[in-house]
Design a protein around this nucleic acid. Structure first.
Lengths: 208, 208
DNA sequence: TTCAAAACCCCCTCATTAGGGGATTGCACT
DNA sequence: AGTGCAATCCCCTAATGAGGGGGTTTTGAA
């Protein structure tokens, strides 16, 4: 028997989901709550197989709840329920440790399927959510518009590793003044004025 | 009419896909190739709406091909076809700019659907692929083992943005010596000895 | 209540970095 | 043959950072 807990501040929706899941013999909804105020205690007690978690809830958001749960439990499957797919929090939820992501409008036809899928080790997602996830992996990967020379990239790389000018000079068998020259060039090209800015930019633009 | 090009070194599979797609009126397969040796030229000429791309091909891999295509074209949808879901290259393909990812075994029942989905702006994925993608986003996010205080995190964040000690002091309305104290603590906790190392570590450990 | 840790402040010195000048060599492109 | 650019090296000064001291006050947990 698959045990399930529902968190959603919408009473009607909670009811509908209970109804929907009651029609499947192997599922047992062992709890539903309008907020996450006692989520840690509840999950510890019930040890559900699957949690359905609304993202937008008052006081403790679904994302916070996932974080709380993941502090002591890495195995229970959590499927997020969200109204809008342009919700920027969706990615946060993924990073927090949710397993699946379903738009509320697609609950009727896809929820049962999604539950089976997480249990099988999958990551069910509504298409538009999947798109966001993929986009987040692709973002920025088109850089290289700063056209740093090979040597400059090398210096930037060593810099990011925490090397001082002196250490880089030794590593590359060139004078410290040459390092300085390269650094100046790099700053110019990246339009920054310090090591920290340069490295920060390098990471953000995936130059490293 | 939706135009489609297929790249796969398996002649039988290419044939099956052609056959499968020919049964859908709105699809027109305008080309199929066993390798990607002339992929840039072919794509430039045909300007297909969708490309089906095998990942494992001799000489130029599907991933390389995606990179080549994305150099001059950001709009054509590319669906990767892969045999194994444990292929570590799947993530590379995503980052290279593919839109969807289908296991070959699920082609018969899901290919038509996947094509419609990318055209609608989605990101169709086989469940096990989705799982990998999600896992890649979640990985490492369990850091926090350096237990920096809230203030220290704030300082580290500002540092990474390229602020000097002076600027941070001004921004936080505290003395520059206090910044210095926080920095010293941060270095101690992260076990580093310079700004650059600290920021590099912060990025690598997802502290920022 | 006591104790530890966080957050704040101050001083010192030496090393390093930022930013501004130069210069020479060698390679590639025209 | 000249032009541009990357890569190398040099010098200078002012600003900043690293690392070592020394503190107080506030706060939260034991």
């Amino acid at each position: 028997m698959i045990t399930i807990i529902i968190y959603d501040d919408n009473n009607d929706l909670r009811g509908s989901i209970r109804q929907l899941l009651s029609e499947v013999d192997r599922f047992a909804v062992t709890g539903d709550h309008a907020n996450c105020n006692h989520v840690m205690q509840q999950v510890k007690e019930m040890k559900p197989d699957v949690i359905l978690m609304d993202i937008d809830m008052p006081l403790i958001s679904g994302i916070e709840a996932v974080r709380l749960i993941r502090k002591f439990n890495r195995t229970t499957h959590i499927i997020m329920l969200t109204v809008f797919d342009d919700n920027k929090h969706v990615l946060d939820a993924i990073c927090a440790g949710a397993s699946g992501y379903l738009l509320k409008k697609s609950i009727p036809e896809k929820l049962v399927n999604a539950i089976d899928e997480v249990l099988a080790g999958g990551a069910p997602m509504s298409p538009s959510i999947a798109k966001m996830v993929v986009a987040s992996l692709q973002q920025g990967k088109e850089a290289e518009r700063y056209d740093l020379s090979a040597r400059e990239k090398e210096v930037l790389y060593l810099l990011a590793k925490g090397n001082s000018f002196k250490m880089m000079a030794a590593a590359l068998f060139i004078s410290i003044d040459t390092i300085r020259s390269h650094i100046k060039k790099i700053y110019e090209k990246l339009q920054v004025h310090s090591q920290t800015e340069a490295i920060s930019k390098a990471y953000n633009e995936k130059l490293i």
